[in-house]
Amino acid sequence: MQIFVKTLTGKTITLEVEPSDTIENVKAKIQDKEGIPPDQQRLIFNGKQLEDGRTLSDYNIQKDSTLHLVLR
Rank of each mutant, 00 (worst) to 15 (best):
M1R: 08
M1D: 03
M1Y: 09
M1L: 04
M1S: 10
M1V: 11
Q2L: 09
Q2I: 02
Q2F: 07
Q2R: 05
Q2Y: 15
I3G: 00
I3T: 01
I3L: 15
I3K: 00
I3Y: 01
F4S: 03
F4P: 03
F4I: 09
F4G: 10
F4D: 14
V5E: 00
V5Q: 00
V5I: 06
V5D: 00
K6W: 15
K6R: 15
K6N: 11
K6E: 08
K6P: 05
K6G: 02
K6I: 13
T7L: 11
T7E: 10
T7H: 01
T7K: 04
T7V: 15
T7G: 09
T7Q: 15
L8A: 02
L8Y: 08
L8S: 14
L8E: 08
L8K: 07
T9N: 13
T9P: 11
T9I: 03
T9Y: 12
G10V: 13
G10M: 09
G10R: 02
G10I: 14
G10H: 10
G10A: 07
G10P: 13
K11R: 03
K11G: 11
T12V: 05
T12H: 12
T12W: 15
T12G: 06
I13E: 04
I13D: 08
I13W: 10
I13A: 13
T14W: 07
T14K: 04
L15P: 00
L15N: 00
L15V: 01
L15M: 13
L15H: 01
L15S: 01
E16P: 06
E16K: 11
E16I: 10
E16N: 04
E16M: 06
V17Y: 06
V17E: 01
V17G: 08
V17W: 06
V17N: 03
E18D: 07
P19G: 11
P19S: 14
P19M: 02
P19Q: 07
S20H: 13
S20G: 12
S20M: 10
S20P: 07
D21N: 05
T22P: 11
T22V: 09
I23K: 01
I23L: 14
I23F: 02
I23N: 05
I23Y: 15
E24L: 02
E24V: 01
E24M: 10
N25T: 02
N25A: 05
N25I: 13
V26P: 00
V26M: 09
K27Y: 14
K27W: 10
K27T: 07
K27E: 12
K27A: 15
K27N: 14
K27Q: 15
A28T: 10
A28K: 08
A28D: 04
A28Y: 11
A28V: 06
A28W: 07
K29H: 13
K29M: 05
K29Y: 07
I30G: 01
I30Q: 00
I30D: 00
Q31K: 06
Q31P: 03
Q31S: 02
Q31V: 07
D32L: 04
D32H: 11
D32G: 11
D32W: 10
D32A: 12
K33D: 15
K33P: 07
K33S: 15
K33Y: 10
K33H: 11
E34F: 07
E34P: 03
E34T: 10
E34W: 02
E34I: 04
G35Y: 05
G35A: 15
G35P: 11
G35T: 14
G35D: 06
G35H: 02
G35R: 08
I36Q: 04
I36S: 02
I36R: 06
I36G: 12
I36W: 14
I36L: 06
I36D: 02
P37A: 03
P37W: 14
P37I: 12
P37H: 08
P38L: 14
P38E: 14
P38N: 15
D39V: 04
D39P: 07
D39R: 05
D39H: 05
D39E: 05
D39N: 03
Q40W: 10
Q40M: 12
Q40P: 06
Q40S: 11
Q40T: 08
Q40R: 03
Q41H: 13
Q41N: 15
Q41K: 05
R42A: 13
R42T: 09
R42D: 14
L43G: 00
L43W: 04
I44P: 00
I44D: 10
I44V: 12
I44W: 03
I44N: 15
F45L: 12
F45N: 10
F45M: 15
F45T: 07
F45I: 07
N46S: 10
N46Q: 04
N46H: 03
N46A: 12
N46M: 09
G47D: 14
G47Q: 12
G47M: 06
G47H: 07
K48P: 07
K48D: 14
K48L: 15
K48I: 04
K48Q: 06
K48R: 08
K48W: 11
K48T: 09
Q49T: 12
Q49H: 13
L50V: 09
L50K: 00
L50M: 09
L50G: 01
L50D: 00
L50N: 00
L50I: 10
L50W: 01
E51I: 02
E51A: 02
D52Y: 14
D52H: 06
D52T: 11
D52A: 04
D52Q: 05
D52F: 09
D52M: 05
G53W: 03
G53N: 03
G53E: 12
G53Y: 14
G53D: 13
R54P: 06
R54A: 13
R54H: 12
R54G: 12
T55Q: 14
T55H: 08
T55G: 02
L56F: 15
L56D: 00
L56V: 03
L56N: 01
L56I: 02
L56A: 06
S57E: 12
S57G: 12
S57P: 13
S57R: 04
S57T: 11
S57K: 06
D58R: 02
D58T: 14
D58Y: 10
Y59V: 02
Y59D: 15
Y59Q: 15
N60E: 08
I61S: 01
I61N: 00
I61A: 09
Q62G: 07
Q62S: 10
Q62L: 11
Q62T: 11
Q62R: 08
K63A: 12
K63G: 15
D64G: 03
D64L: 09
D64I: 02
D64A: 12
D64K: 04
D64Y: 01
S65P: 01
S65K: 02
S65L: 06
S65D: 14
S65G: 09
S65T: 15
S65N: 12
T66L: 09
T66D: 13
T66R: 01
T66N: 11
T66A: 13
L67R: 01
L67M: 01
L67I: 10
L67W: 01
L67Y: 01
L67T: 10
H68M: 08
H68N: 14
H68K: 04
H68L: 10
L69N: 02
L69D: 00
L69F: 06
L69E: 11
L69W: 03
L69S: 11
L69V: 10
L69R: 00
V70N: 07
V70T: 13
V70K: 03
L71V: 06
L71M: 13
L71S: 15
R72A: 13
R72E: 08
R72K: 13
R72Q: 08
R72F: 12
R72Y: 15
R72W: 12
